[in-house]
Structures are given as C-alpha cells and as structure tokens.
Nucleic acid binder design. Structure first.
Lengths: 354, 354
DNA sequence: GTTAGCACTCAAACGCATAGAGTGCTAACA
DNA sequence: TGTTAGCACTCTATGCGTTTGAGTGCTAAC
C-alpha cells in the first residue's frame, strides 16, 4: 500500500498528539486539527490503512491509535534524513546553548565534572534521563609520567595522557627512594615512553626501561602496570547519569517493577555501555542513532527509546551521550538538542587545543 | 502507666512481626507466639495500654497495631544501651565480614573505590539503601605538592594530603616554564607548606611564597588557590550511594511520588550530607545514630529510618556511613552490621598506617 | 472520494453487597 | 484481681453487575 501525503500527515498528527497526551489518539481528535479538515469517518478509513501497514495499533478495540515502533522508525528516519523538514540543529537561541555557555564559562579543567554537568543540563532541558560516557582514550598517547615519593614505602605515579587526562596511582614499593634515584627513574621512563600509545609500548621497550632502572627494575614494572591501567578501558569509561527520576513523569513507564529495573541499570552503570553502543572509529562527526522500543539493546529499556550521539573533544578523544525517554519522546527536540550540544562542544574544543 | 515486662514483650513481638510482614499485627497473631501464652483478649487489653502510651497505633479501627516512631525509639534505645540484649556486634562469621575481607584483599589504593565497594556490599547485605561520604580532610595536612609542565600554557599541580589523598589540578598559566623555574617553584612551595593544615597557611606565609616566586608570583597564587580547593569541603565530600532500588521492595514506600523524591535526593546527593549528620569531633569511636521516621532531617526521607555510623581511617580521617530503609527496618541487624564494618575498618587501617 | 448514521465493543468508573480481620466491651471464671 | 469467652461493631478489601463514554467499522447516501 502506498503511503501518500495525507496518510503521512495523519501519522504525524497521531505521533504528535500521542507525544503530548500519552493517550491513544482517536479519529475525532485528528479531524479537529486545522490542517486536516476531514470528517472523523475519512480519518478512520485512513487510520485503518495505516494500521494495516503496521504503523499504528489499537491497544484495544474501542481505543484510539498509538504509533508502533515501525511507525516511529518511519518518522524518525524521515526526521534524520530530510534535514530541511525541521532540524534547525545548532541554530537559534536554544536553552541548552545558553546553559552550556554558562557552565563552560567556568573553564572547568576536570573533564569528568564537565561531563557530569553536561548530563545534568541535558536532563533538565529535555526532561528525560541522560547518560554520558567518559571519553575513550585507547587512541590516546602518553604525555608524561611523574613519580614522587610519598613516604611509608609508597610511590605516587601521576600519569598524564594527551588531552590532559590525569590518572593517579599509589604504588606500594616497600622501600624508600632518594631524590636522585627518583629523578633517574623519572627521566628514564619519560624519555622512553613519552608520546607513545599503549600499543606502542612493546617488549623491547619494556626490557630497555627495566635495564635502565637497574636494581629498581621491579619498581619500573609496577609503573608500567600503572600506565597500562591508566589506558584501561574498563577503568577509563565511567558513565555519568542524570535525571533518572524523570521517567516517573511518564505514566506508561510507571510500573513499579519496570521502573525499578531501569533505575537499577542506571545505578549499576554496567549495562549502559551496551545501550550507548560503540563509538564508530572515525565515523561522521554527528552520528546520531535512535533506538526505538524493542530496538534498544538493553532488556530493561525495551519500553523506552534511546537517542545517542558521539561527542568530540579534540585530540581524537570522543565519547557517547544518550538520552533515555519514553517511546513517545520528542525525538525532534532531542535530536536538535543533541546536535546543538555536539556543535558547541566541537567549537569549544577546537579553539583552545589547536 | 508502667511499661512492665509483659507489655515490653508484646511491643517487641509487634515490632518483629511488623518487620517481617509489613502488615498491622493483630492480637490473635501475638497470642499464638510461644512465649506469650495468653488469649487474644488479654493481649488486646495490653495493646490498648500500649496504644494509650503512644507506642503503637491502629491505621484504622478494625486493623491490627503498628509501632509508632516513639515505640521504635524505645526499642532502638534499648537495643543500643543494653549491649547484652542482642548486639553481638563484630563477632561471629557474618556475611559482611567475609565480603569485606575479600574486597579489601585487593588492596585497593584508591579510597573512593573502596568506599564505593563498601556501599555496595552493605546494600547487598542489608537489602537497604546505603550511602557513604568520602572522608573529611579538614583536619588533614599537606604532604606535598608536585608541579609539572603540561605544555600548552598549562601546569599540572598534584596535591597530596596526609592519608594519601591525591588531588589533581590543571592550572592555566598562559606561558611555558622551563624545568629550572619549575624546580624552584616546587621547592619553595614544598619547603614552606609541607605538613601544614589549611588553617595554618596564613597571610605571612602566602606573602613569603609569593616573594620567593618572584616574577612567577601569580602562578604561586594559583597553586595556593588549588591547595585551598583541595581542602575544600564541598569538593572533598563526595557521597556514594548504592542499592537505591532496594526501597522498591517495601510496599509501604511504593508511592510513586515519594519514591521519586527519594531517588532524586539520592541522585543529586546534595541533601545526603544533612541526612548523615556532622562527624562529631573526636566522638566515641562507634557513635551509631538512629533516626526514625520524622526524626530524619531530610523531608523526602520522613517515611524512612536512617542509621548512621562514623568510620575511622587512620590519621584522624573519618567519614560517615548511612543505611536508609523503611521505618520497620531490621534495626538490630543494621546496627550489628555497621558495628562489624566499623571494627573491620579500624583493624585494617591501624595495621598498615602505624 | 467523502461523510452521516448507527450498531457494536470494551475499558474504566461506579455503586453495592459481602467477607473477614480485628477491635472494645461485658460478663463469667479461677 | 487477672484472665478469658462471647458478641456486637467497625471498617477495609474484594468481587460483581451496571453504566458510561470514547472510539471503532460498516453501510448507505451524497
């Protein structure tokens, strides 16, 4: 069956009305809208067709229609491909824009705090739940290592990666080192390792570092372990969430067991990586993904939709942002907000880095 | 009216039965218990007295009795003062004990991770929600500062406090420093400030540091700001929570609005400090506090009870742990678990530190 | 192709009766 | 004097049939 223009309009009307009310939409409601001046009967005929096409359903016989996942997919795909249709993206004085600038004007140095704030702002603006992964460092390089004696047989190793990611590690070395030895170790490690990615730190290099460390070879090994740990994915991939309680606003999600499962996933954070998907290597700058209902790869989110985007932070460092909302979420607003945020981040991180 | 032994027993029976079922307890239920061989009528008389004393109430005329806050307070005070009655505290092979040792055997260096794990273990063991504040550093002293050049006009200041608390700060200094200058600054800062508490860093000292820094005085000031920031309460007081979804298990809390408010407070973490109360300066080692219902100083927790304890981490560093549960929580188990955990922490942090 | 009309369906709301748990009170009993 | 059996009473929760109303599909007329 053909999806002509009128059918498309009716589908859109159903989607928008259902977005606002959360209630199934009847033919009368549609017929009263200004740009669809047909009688309820006509609308009903069209709606029967749309149902046959699998784009809408009735929860029960005497109810109005609700968009299906397939219906939403059609709508969302249309949103994402036809740029002109509605996606003004980064333009215009949007709320997130002003908020963002305010929050970034503080020049936060710590990436984590900025990401947390970003999650909070997005959650507040969209009224949905937001999750943000910390940046991926895998492609990153070692900027420098700084060892300092802490006393009590402990050594502080500060490891700095490109993109100004700082990691602390307290190493238990069981003995005290004098300043000179420390200086030697520092120099040896830095001259051998600086500027390398974790893959480039290979066996010959490790052997060389160990040789140079002489009797302190075991300490050097511990430092190298710490370096590997600093690059470690598991550890360097914190996920920040915000606005978890926003889901309480949508009655269709208000089932206690479901909500408990969902909040549990948000608290444990383990599964969120799955929900956000993998960062596509060198994907297009603004690759926005929309997962609708059953498409969401996390069991307890199958009643929701998730919109994800990849953010860039200069130096090739990138991460993911995700918005979790009900299936009837305002996809247009969410996509626009995400695009605007991505653009802003791009702008901010291009200036000071290059 | 006198609270004789039989009345006390009946109160206890009501409390325990209500703990298990969450339903109001009737006279018949009590009379069937082995150690209270009286007819329901007798029990009813006693219950009427207990109600008159304000220790129990009926939700409605034809319902059983439920303990009041006052009834719980009596019970809890009795628990906490009469040590023999039931509080075996740290002894015995409790679940938390074995868990704790497992998790601490990993020798986690990072305090935060340990605290998070502790929250998780406690939440899992008690089936309630747990919150843990990071340690207070106010009384703490500066161990050393390490400045390193990061390039791009940025300086990395690593600030280490007593108790091996490490704070990173990236400072924007707008120029590059050579190694020698950096060494001077490092030396000057450390020789002047090491071993001092934040209160001891006073104006004369600051002037001296600035003088020694010469033309780099403004950089020194920035470092000092960072030091102050590292001591800052707001910043050094993260709160970790775990088991938020455990509250869904207790039907009396299952009101959607209440639960939303509660989870919101747990997510925002701002009010949790209030709930946990202030660390008493040099208070008794195991000062366990129980807040019952309306006694809880946070609005959205007034349907809950909160049990808090102060933990010690050597070097005078201490923080708070809190367990949030329904009013009918198992106070005995919670208090015992907390005492056991405190004792373990004491044991662990005394060994390696002294 | 569009629309008025109408019979039909079904969830939600409502009213009402019933069951059952639990109480307080009184009177009898040890 | 303390304990208990008996009984009337209260109030919630449950179940059930009815009503209401929103919305549909279909048919026939325009």
């Amino acid at each position: 069956m053909e999806l002509d223009d009128r059918k498309r309009k009716i589908l859109l009307a159903i989607i928008q009305n259902y977005q606002d009310t959360g209630e199934p939409v009847g033919s009368r409601t549609i017929s009263k809208m200004n740009d669809l001046n047909y009688s309820p009967a006509t609308i009903r005929n069209e709606m029967a067709d749309l149902e046959e096409m699998g784009l809408i359903v009735q929860p029960h016989t005497s109810a109005g229609r609700v968009p299906t996942d397939k219906g939403y997919r059609l709508y969302v795909d249309h949103l994402l491909t036809n740029e002109e249709t509605g996606l003004t993206a980064a333009e215009g004085p949007q709320l997130p824009a002003t908020h963002m600038e305010q929050l970034l004007s503080k020049r936060m140095d710590r990436v984590e705090e900025m990401l947390m704030r970003m999650a909070q702002v997005l959650a507040a603006n969209t009224q949905y739940t937001t999750m943000v992964t910390g940046p991926h460092y895998k492609q990153n390089k070692l900027k420098f290592i700084q060892l300092s004696a802490m006393g009590g047989g402990k050594l502080l190793a500060v490891i700095v990666l490109n993109g100004n990611i700082v990691k602390n590690n307290i190493l238990d070395i069981g003995c005290e080192l004098d300043q000179e030895t420390l200086g030697h170790l520092n120099f040896s490690l830095n001259s051998n390792l600086n500027g390398l990615s974790v893959e480039e730190i290979n066996l010959p290099l490790i052997t060389k570092v160990k040789e140079e460390a002489g009797e302190y070879a075991d300490i050097a090994v511990k430092v190298l372990d710490a370096v590997a740990g600093a690059f470690d994915k598991e550890d360097s991939m914190p996920v920040y969430t915000s606005g978890a309680t926003n889901i309480f606003k949508y009655p269709e999600l208000a089932d206690n067991e479901k909500i408990s499962n969902l909040i549990n996933v948000l608290e444990e954070k383990k599964e969120l990586g799955t929900a956000l998907g993998v960062v596509s290597p060198d994907g297009s700058k603004q690759d926005i993904q929309v997962y609708i209902g059953d498409e969401v790869p996390v069991e307890s989110m199958k009643d929701c939709s998730v919109v994800t985007a990849t953010y860039q932070m200069g130096d090739g460092v990138q991460g993911k942002i995700g918005i979790i909302g009900p299936r009837r979420m305002d996809y247009q607003k969410v996509v626009e907000t995400l695009k605007a945020t991505m653009n802003q981040l791009d702008g901010i991180f291009k200036k000071p880095e290059e």
